[in-house]
Design a protein around this nucleic acid. Structure first.
Lengths: 211, 211, 211, 211
DNA sequence: GATGAATGAGCGTTCATTCAT
DNA sequence: CATGAATGAACGCTCATTCAT
């Protein structure tokens, strides 16, 4: 008699990392890094605390895996979009922002900015990782878009570094609002309105002076 | 023999709460709520840990007192400025933003937004207070400015509620950046550049379409 | 009304370190460094685990304090004796060994060599400390005695470094025997005989060839 | 078709216990009992952790098997040498010590004394075994040599029991030194010097008073 | 009012042991 | 026989809170 498919525990082994990362993202976002107990992550994933350590060697490694697994690939997709887009920069900006909001703003990943803002100071290694893999790549991506627009005379001259950061800050704030229970709480249904107005406000701010 | 003014130890006793709140603000801002040890707050205020408990019955109560004590008075000043300003709305916007930055962004109060963002979830009652007394008053103040500009045809038509919030979000982000160690850290010397670019970006975004 | 003597808790504070060190020495010697739980040390001293940390910042620091407090001063006394002794080197050797046995071999401190031998490999910082403060000073002290004897022609020419170490090794073994339950166990009453025979054996081994 | 000898996997099965014991001896000697992880023993032996438990029902049983398997056979060889030696007792002593050092001191078996010293307290049954089969037989062997020397007037009168133990203690210490990392660490190249000096020191200590 | 010694619950991490496959 | 994923108890260390003085 043979096993037509993998034995049960092996199938679990392959599924485990995703289950753990998902549980961890939920709890990190809900409670913050420091306040999340690994016991609870394990329980939420339906395993024991020891099992967690079979897959991630420390709490910090678990967090890094959450980011690597969830956020980093999306940065890559955005970068590709900027590089290969063929329409106007205005269309690119709109697409970029809406895609980002769909894949991050509307998922649990939107909890990460608030998380990092709150905990960065106490976990230097974590914040260095996030800074390099997410923040800086994100800023460079927006700066690429600005450069493209300036080269094509589709937007006015701006400072690549400074305005890139300023332009993503409302997006980051919107993600934070979404996860703020009590302060700056926004009606979730209105977030799409905020996004639309933000896009218009930014495009107005960027349009050439003679338009 | 009479005491024309209170003896020194009595003045000290009355000053205690302010000294404690000041020390606590410093440390909460620097390290966050959870990572701040009451030992250190007490030491920074020059008292023993036990004394802290004579004034605030728990760490949470101390935190609430710090926030309640911090930002509210400054909102009033900004409101007055909007109500009594006589120049163009562009001038008003510039003045408002620069004054706010001077009195909040450049003081340790600038640490509160980050703190509230991180801890709001754990202090529902406190965040309701902050939401009403700081956030909403601030948004109404900016909305007043926008309404004034629209009435005077100095800015294009915008959504008072939505754009007010969008407009203050980079300012809030700048305060957060200032207190970010590791993630989104900005060179403190460049914050004035960010402020200047933000003002220009916003004014461009707000100018009437035919200008 | 005044306090004619210190308040109770202050008297405790002064006594605590000795109580803790004594309990720690007992347990370290009985169970080894790694196998000793701080909970048990605290319980043996009649305090809570947290209290231990008021006095010693880590398990390793506690151990160092045990050694510093118990063993190091005795090394100093032995050094002084070698420096100031006026009789023959044979008398010095006898006195040195018997004094050492009285103050170390016959006290709980005699458990330390076995402890260090067993745990050194896993606690590098600990063993470096013990090596410098106890072993090397002890070997230098015995070497001083040998040099003195060689200069006075009271013992044959030996290698200061090698023979010093060889000469103290039976003393160390005797201390280990005392704490070996099961292996090399010796009748405690016979340890004085071992000491006497060791002294004779060593003195025979050291006497000049022409005596 | 027949198998002239056992098939490979069966030979492997029979060799397993020795492979496990050898790997375990290496690691126990290097790290001590508590610090040795069964994961590592299994890995060093090229099997899984579960397999270990097919052969030894617990970590303690494995340890006992290591010790029982280790030193006993070599004691017998030394006993034979004493019984059949024909030269002077000085020559016998030199040969005995050098042979012992070659077959034990220079192999990984030299790690056992340190191991037993450290763990004897935790394994009463095991240390009784070690005491009877290794220690006491070793002491009787040295005592035989001393008796022989006294009968032949080649050494002075000593106490058979006490001096036998004293005489082997530097040898035991040398084995411990060899495995000491950090405390009492000796340059491995100098161990032969220690052996040579020890032999001279002991022979001087044993020579008749009138020599 | 003020002190600071003492407490004890809580968390990250390790690893011997088990058992389904 | 052999595997290796899973378990859970254990321990070092922290820190908000208490209370005798």
């Amino acid at each position: 008699m043979s096993f037509p498919c993998k034995p049960k525990w092996e199938r679990r082994k392959e599924a485990r990392p995703q289950e753990l990362l998902s549980a961890a993202l939920d709890l990190f976002v809900e409670r913050g890094f420091a306040a999340t107990r690994l016991d609870d992550v394990a329980k939420a994933a339906g395993v024991s605390k020891g099992t967690l350590y079979l897959y991630y060697s420390s709490k910090e490694e678990l967090f890094k895996a959450v980011v690597r697994n969830g956020m980093v690939p999306l940065i890559g997709e955005a970068e590709s979009m900027v590089d290969s887009f063929t329409g106007t920069t205005e269309e690119l900006f709109r697409t970029l922002m809406r895609t980002w909001w769909d894949s991050v703003g509307n998922t649990k990943l939107s909890g990460l900015p608030k998380l990092m803002m709150a905990e960065a100071g106490n976990f230097p290694e974590l914040s260095a990782f996030y800074q390099e893999e997410v923040i800086e790549r994100g800023e460079r991506m927006v700066a690429s878009m600005l450069r493209r627009g300036m080269e094509r005379k589709e937007i006015r001259d701006v400072d690549l570094e400074i305005d890139a950061r300023l332009l993503i800050s409302p997006m980051i704030m919107m993600m934070m609002w979404k996860h703020s229970t009590g302060v700056c709480k926004v009606d979730p249904d209105k977030l799409d309105d905020y996004l639309a107005h933000y896009i218009e406000l930014a495009l107005h701010g960027l349009r050439p002076l003679d338009c």
